[in-house]
Write a protein that binds this DNA or RNA. Structure first.
Lengths: 107, 107
DNA sequence: ATTACCTGCAACCAAAGAGTTGCACATAAC
DNA sequence: GTTATGTGCAACTCTTTGGTTGCAGGTAAT
């Protein structure tokens, strides 16, 4: 996953309303912005903006069906970001262990 | 990891300057705000604020040493958040699979 | 004792972002 | 054809927040 991709996913997930939106979407499996607006205490327009951010980050995809647009979850981007994070944590541990070892080693 | 904890970590990681700060800190292993200010193109005060956010999220810890304050990385919070994300991705997959199965099943 | 360095607090600024309302347009339903 | 529903665009408000500068106080170094 690219640096920009991770950036976009993290920025998207930082907002609580957006996470609630993903939750609502995971319950429905697939839904339009208007339908989702019924699940959350914000206007449809706010939902639409959030969905645009989520789509930009690759966390959802949209598909037009007649007069409505159906949104679906995409787990890949989320999964990739989770791995990126786990890798970063491992990296920190590695570096810290090295520093600690050097500090304890007799010179 | 608590919901508030995940929230704090995601919000903290959303900012690119904060991620760069974590990077700089991982290179040094341990450093003061003033030292880190030399690594990034922002003022010491900005660094201090970012470190406060990171500490609140549990991503770094601080320790006073004489006149300076040394910051260190904490990988646990990051690791826990990575697991939370991986679990969420798995959850999405599970739900989507169920929905797909129900849709394909004859009624 | 004086100088240098790091931290802490506060006020302030500007940009980004979440949310709203209003209206126009398209597609389905009756 | 008329009505209802879903989307798209735009303007506008309010709050958050990343960043700054300035100054005071503490701790080390000379």
């Amino acid at each position: 996953m690219t640096k920009a991709g991770v950036d976009a996913v993290l920025a998207a997930l930082a907002d609580p309303t957006r996470r609630a939106l993903l939750d609502a979407l995971s319950a429905r499996g697939q839904a339009s912005a208007s339908a989702l607006a019924g699940d959350l205490p914000v206007s449809r327009q706010a939902i639409v903006k959030h969905l645009a951010v989520l789509e930009e980050a690759g966390l959802v995809s949209s598909e037009r069906a007649g007069r409505e647009v159906r949104y679906t979850l995409r787990s890949q981007a989320l999964d990739a970001t989770a791995r990126w994070m786990a890798g970063l944590a491992a990296d920190w541990d590695r570096r810290l262990a090295t520093i600690k070892r050097l500090a304890e080693e007799p010179d």
